[in-house]
Design a binder for these strands. Structure first.
Lengths: 334, 334
DNA sequence: ACTCAAAATTGGAACGATCCAAAAAAGAAC
DNA sequence: GTTCTTTTTTGGATCGTTCCAATTTTGAGT
């Protein structure tokens, strides 16, 4: 920076002002300095800058499973908001591993992030964000939240989604409805299956614990879960899946058994990822609007960066998207 | 850090040594300092450290399209290597936008990354990495490479893959084979379609320019490309798709028209993403082994970080995976 | 007890930016 | 041409770490 100052015939303080595009410098001086900057191929050292001024332009997105297209969509949505605001978002994957998550959070903190959006991994301890929050780093939880954590959160209305789909299946005449996939110890599972139980109770059908089958929230989880469900003495005629990826597994599993999803068996997903409407048959699911959710999380974080300290607990709207996999019109099957 | 020194009754230099786990400190002193560290809830400031010592533990992965599951898989593979080596990988998405990519690269440089793995966006200028390379930051291109860029690269054998699949379709009796999707101005398109042309020429079939239909490398690109292909005066009986996602679009398009992929029409993909074998019908495709490719790119970068300056131009092995979408056994269709 | 090497510790000067208070330059008003 | 604002520029201290050379402590050998 001193080299530039010399080259442009000004002081390093002036160069600093130019770099931060301060209105204090005369236009002419600015041009002079700017020329020197690209003459010398100078690169700003963000680390040094952060030393004095905590304001960094780096935000972190900590995501539990990048391989799940839903989270990839969410990430893309979030990114778009930050781009416009002059922040550079970096994504880190924790692969559902709380240890890995802790490492990532530490690294981001050391790096001096301006804020964080986190989709907490499974089994995240309640105090995972304590240090960050105490330091005044805005932390927004997205999609999931850790109970006991004192950080903002933006989550979809999982309970309502679970209830709506279950009601839909009930209306189609199903009485044996399974809830498939996802780990019982996660926030999302508790809420989604909670909505499911609530709807069953309200309809006077009653919950059969054997029909709540957990497992990894991926394709395999769907396939093996389906196998277990069909192996029951009194098997279900419909399944509500923890998420769309699980539902894809179920669709594949049904087909392998020569069953036609949407005709012989009803399948409903959750999330409405881009592929859901391209599945065969197109998947009935709960649209969570990942884009809007990500946008909202990002905006919440920006507000916190700018000093708004009100703790936000946002709930995103969801709605049922009826396609073919639930077999609307298969009332006789039950 | 000075607070810690005082609290532990040592000097800041000693604390610094402990933080870097130097062998110079006595075990007893180390324990003393470590206790002070978590008593006071101290957080290391990586920025300040990088100020003196260029060695950062942050590596960047710049990815052109996170929404494509193939790149997400690649990213996960790369991450796994770095974790073991004590580096923290951050992912940034460029969404195929060279301007955005430039911003991201600048941000990473300012942040002082130890190295970069880049899947260059479309239309990346040849000098995009010049500054980085001049600074001695290791840059490894993965999957794609920019011509003229003097940076290492690890890419799959696209040409061979294109050739193999085309030969396979020829062997099944097809003579009108289209190449669908992808932008003509990308490296991967040039190589993959190059292999395709080569195989056609070798078989004496000849290339019909009308059968090379480009478009976005996503589901939509597949659907609209298929529509164009089927609208030709002399339509193809088989398509080789630029990648699996395009192929998924083609499968959906065929089904909408009441055509059965693998029976009425042959479809082949490229990449072998996880979903390829779960498609219906399971997709015949070229396996590029994203995991191994990512691993190799990461290891190349690590070698460069450790001072190995030999420019690497790695080519990853590919192999044809025959499933059902190509309709092995449909020779009569041609 | 004394010497000397080895091991462990230390203070102060960097690194590259920002902040602050103060100085210099430019304009306005008389 | 003063004097007084207002605008622009500036030097030096500072952020939290690492490096270096120098110092202190330890311990072995006599």
């Amino acid at each position: 920076m001193i080299d530039i100052a010399r080259h442009a015939g000004v002081s390093k303080s002036t160069v600093s002002l130019v770099l931060r595009s301060s209105p204090l410098v005369k236009a002419e001086t600015r041009r002079l300095v700017e020329r020197a900057i690209d003459d010398l191929g100078y690169v700003y050292n963000r680390g040094a800058a952060n030393l004095r001024q905590a304001r960094s332009n780096m935000v972190g997105m900590v995501i539990n499973d990048l391989a799940n297209p839903f989270f990839a969509e969410l990430a893309v949505g979030i990114e778009r908001v930050f781009q416009g605001a002059g922040y550079v978002p970096f994504i880190a994957n924790t692969a559902e591993n709380p240890l890995r998550q802790a490492e990532v959070l530490r690294a981001l903190r050391e790096q001096g992030v301006a804020g964080l959006i986190v989709c907490p991994s499974r089994n995240t301890p309640a105090d995972a964000f304590k240090g960050l929050v105490a330091d005044g780093v805005p932390v927004v939880q997205a999609m999931r939240k850790v109970d006991g954590a004192r950080a903002a959160s933006i989550v979809p209305d999982n309970r309502r989604g679970g209830r709506q789909t279950t009601e839909h299946l009930l209306a189609l005449g199903h009485r044996r409805i399974a809830f498939l996939g996802g780990y019982r110890d996660t926030f999302a599972h508790a809420e989604r299956s909670g909505g499911y139980c609530q709807a069953l109770d309200a309809a006077g059908v009653g919950v059969d614990a054997a029909l709540i089958i957990d497992g990894p929230p991926n394709r395999d989880g769907g396939e093996t879960g389906l196998a277990r469900a069909l192996g029951l003495a009194n098997p279900p005629t419909a399944v509500l899946c923890f998420n769309d990826v699980v539902a894809f597994g179920v669709l594949a599993g049904l087909r392998q058994r020569g069953l036609m999803p949407g005709v012989d068996f009803a399948v409903v997903g959750f999330d409405d990822v881009a592929d859901a409407r391209h599945a065969s048959p197109p998947l009935t699911t709960v649209a969570v609007d990942s884009f809007a959710l990500g946008e909202r999380a990002a905006q919440t974080m920006l507000r916190m960066v700018h000093g708004d300290a009100t703790p936000v607990e946002g709930v995103g709207d969801v709605h049922l998207v009826v396609r073919e996999s639930c077999g609307a019109g298969m009332e006789q099957a039950a």
